[in-house]
Amino acid sequence: MVARDDAGVSSIELVVYVPLLLLLLFMGVQVGQVMLGNQAALAAAREAARVARAGGDLTAAEDRGRAYAASIGTGVLRGADVEVLALDGGLTVRATVTGDAYALVPSLGGRITQVAEGPVEVFRGDT
């Protein structure tokens, strides 16, 4: 039996494994960016719903949701669109925030949609 020479095996392993490790690294960062975008969209939806619940002005709530989404961070949630609707005859509001997550590779970003809903606050004086 003849012993074989192991010269060059490390180079071949490096060529095979480094691209796989880089792919896993980029996938991990991309998943993190999508999760961060989801949290940013949810925070903007909650803020818009809070303003609509407290004051009842849907236009002001949409403006506040857009401003909040823009102030969260550059590139976290791009192209945020905020829509606030009154439901159940004005007793409930629903805020929907839609935007794009930051993507390392442009085709991997994905569309994000988050919804926050709650009852409109009504003051009832003592009787």
Score class of each variant (00 low, 15 high):
80 A>P: 04
71 S>K: 06
82 V>Y: 06
89 G>V: 09
77 L>Q: 03
100 D>K: 02
98 T>L: 11
73 G>R: 01
78 R>Y: 01
92 T>H: 12
97 V>N: 05
103 A>D: 03
98 T>H: 07
91 L>D: 13
82 V>I: 07
81 D>I: 09
78 R>N: 08
84 V>T: 12
79 G>F: 01
103 A>V: 01
79 G>Y: 00
81 D>P: 03
104 L>E: 00
78 R>Q: 08
81 D>E: 14
71 S>H: 05
74 T>E: 08
98 T>A: 14
86 A>W: 14
95 A>Q: 11
73 G>H: 02
82 V>K: 08
74 T>K: 04
85 L>G: 14
101 A>D: 00
74 T>A: 08
99 G>I: 03
94 R>Q: 15
82 V>C: 08
84 V>N: 14
84 V>L: 10
93 V>C: 12
87 L>A: 14
101 A>F: 03
94 R>E: 14
74 T>I: 02
79 G>E: 05
73 G>F: 02
102 Y>E: 08
98 T>S: 14
98 T>M: 11
104 L>S: 00
102 Y>S: 09
90 G>S: 15
72 I>L: 15
78 R>G: 06
101 A>E: 01
96 T>P: 09
88 D>V: 09
95 A>V: 09
82 V>L: 07
88 D>Q: 12
80 A>S: 05
93 V>W: 10
91 L>M: 12
92 T>E: 15
96 T>W: 08
96 T>D: 12
77 L>A: 06
95 A>W: 08
76 V>S: 05
77 L>V: 04
79 G>N: 05
75 G>L: 05
98 T>K: 10
79 G>K: 02
79 G>Q: 03
86 A>Y: 13
94 R>Y: 09
88 D>F: 09
100 D>M: 04
86 A>K: 10
101 A>T: 00
95 A>M: 11
97 V>D: 04
101 A>Y: 00
100 D>W: 01
72 I>R: 04
79 G>W: 01
95 A>K: 05
73 G>S: 08
89 G>R: 12
75 G>H: 02
103 A>T: 02
91 L>N: 13
71 S>Y: 03
96 T>K: 08
97 V>A: 07
103 A>E: 00
74 T>M: 01
98 T>I: 10
103 A>Y: 00
96 T>I: 08
95 A>I: 06
95 A>Y: 09
78 R>V: 04
91 L>R: 15
79 G>L: 02
99 G>Q: 06
92 T>G: 12
104 L>Y: 00
99 G>W: 05
77 L>H: 01
96 T>F: 08
93 V>P: 13
103 A>Q: 02
83 E>R: 13
91 L>H: 11
93 V>E: 15
100 D>S: 07
77 L>E: 04
76 V>M: 03
100 D>H: 02
75 G>S: 05
94 R>T: 10
80 A>H: 04
99 G>C: 07
77 L>T: 05
87 L>R: 13
102 Y>M: 08
88 D>N: 10
100 D>V: 01
103 A>I: 01
91 L>W: 08
71 S>Q: 06
82 V>F: 05
97 V>E: 04
98 T>V: 15
79 G>P: 03
93 V>Q: 11
103 A>N: 03
77 L>M: 07
90 G>Q: 12
86 A>E: 14
90 G>L: 15
95 A>E: 10
74 T>D: 09
92 T>K: 11
102 Y>P: 04
97 V>C: 06
82 V>N: 07
98 T>N: 10
104 L>D: 01
85 L>A: 14
104 L>V: 03
79 G>A: 05
